[in-house]
């Protein structure tokens, strides 16, 4: 066991990690930040996406010791400073872009990375970018709308189509 220190959502955090400890397990068990989820074991589902030094990564595919010293942003760090929902989070609520909520942390983190790269994505851009995030509840329809809305584009309101 070695102590690993990262800046997580702006705060310096330290917890022990074995050589084999994955970043997602370090966050969930080491820091007890359980917002980041594990939905598969083959890096396919994207429920565990976080940002490491500004880049979206599947935290199930990164060893905690590998990213010692990194700046990490998780779903717990996406709200505004006053605690209100951030733009993407609010759009997900406004457009019913989540049901069971399990894939949601990864979806929001991937959406944030997309909008940083491409501030006004087309529907096709959103669908392509989210290929690495599986949702079983929504059929993606409202997730796509939420991401488009979060980018400031006009989308049809919920329950009025």
């Amino acid at each position: 066991m070695t102590n690993v220190t990262m800046t997580v959502n702006g705060k310096s955090r330290t917890a022990a990690a074995e050589g084999r400890t994955l970043l997602v397990d370090w966050l969930r068990e080491g820091l007890r930040m359980t917002g980041t989820h594990v939905g598969c074991d083959t890096s396919q589902c994207g429920a565990c996406v976080v940002h490491v030094n500004g880049v979206a990564m599947k935290s199930c595919s990164v060893l905690a010791q590998e990213v010692d010293g990194a700046e990490v942003t998780t779903i717990e760090g996406m709200a505004n400073a006053d605690g209100s929902l951030g733009t993407i989070q609010q759009a997900f609520q406004d457009y019913h872009g989540l049901q069971c909520g399990f894939c949601t942390p990864g979806m929001v983190m991937s959406a944030a990375a997309l909008l940083k790269e491409n501030p006004r994505p087309t529907e096709a851009d959103v669908r392509h970018y989210l290929e690495g995030n599986i949702c079983r509840c929504t059929g993606y329809h409202n997730i796509v709308k939420a991401v488009m809305a979060a980018s400031g584009q006009q989308v049809a309101p919920v329950a009025a189509e």
Binding site: T34, G35, E76, F92, Q93, L98, T104
Partner: peptide
Amino acid sequence: EDVRFLTGKG
């Protein structure tokens, strides 16, 4: 319920 799911508090 969305607020807790969207902020990692589920």
